[in-house]
């Protein structure tokens, strides 16, 4: 289970580093964030939600019967816009709203 950080997009703002509940992210000399120990990631998505430029994605590895599919998220007011890219490259968009209760 792990996240991936897009080095091209990252602006080195430290937000992901500051939020990770496991203290797992660091920022290098070139002002790029990186995950120190991929095997220690919980997959909680706190860093995804925090990144201002959507540089972080969650990747499904083979241990969880994944084939590199990804999840990304973008915040818009009280809403989160999620995108899942499946193994066939298809993208599915889902929107959650913190003002709306779960159906279940």
């Amino acid at each position: 289970m792990s996240i991936q950080i897009d080095r091209e997009k990252c602006v080195g703002c430290f937000r992901c580093k500051n939020i990770c509940p496991g203290n797992l992210i660091a920022v290098n000399q070139e002002h790029r964030a990186f995950l120190k120990r991929p095997y220690d990631c919980w997959g909680c998505t706190a860093c995804l939600k925090e990144c201002p430029v959507c540089a972080v994605s969650l990747v499904l590895g083979p241990e969880l019967s994944g084939m590199g599919e990804t999840l990304t998220v973008k915040k818009a007011d009280t809403r989160y816009i999620w995108e899942v890219t499946d193994r066939y490259g298809r993208v599915k968009k889902l929107v959650t709203d913190t003002k709306k209760a779960n159906a279940y």
């Binding site: 289970m1 997959g43 998505t45 969650l58 499904l60 969880l64 019967s65 994944g66 084939m67 599919e69 990804t70 999840l71 998220v73 989160y80 999620w82 899942v84 499946d86 193994r87 066939y88 298809r90 599915k92 889902l94 959650t96 779960n102 159906a103 279940y104």
Partner: peptide, 22 residues
Amino acid sequence: EDLYLAYLNMAPVQTLKWLARG
């Protein structure tokens, strides 16, 4: 669809796993 949304609000990996395999 409601389950996908509910899981995004607490355990997003589960939604990813469901959708990853279609």
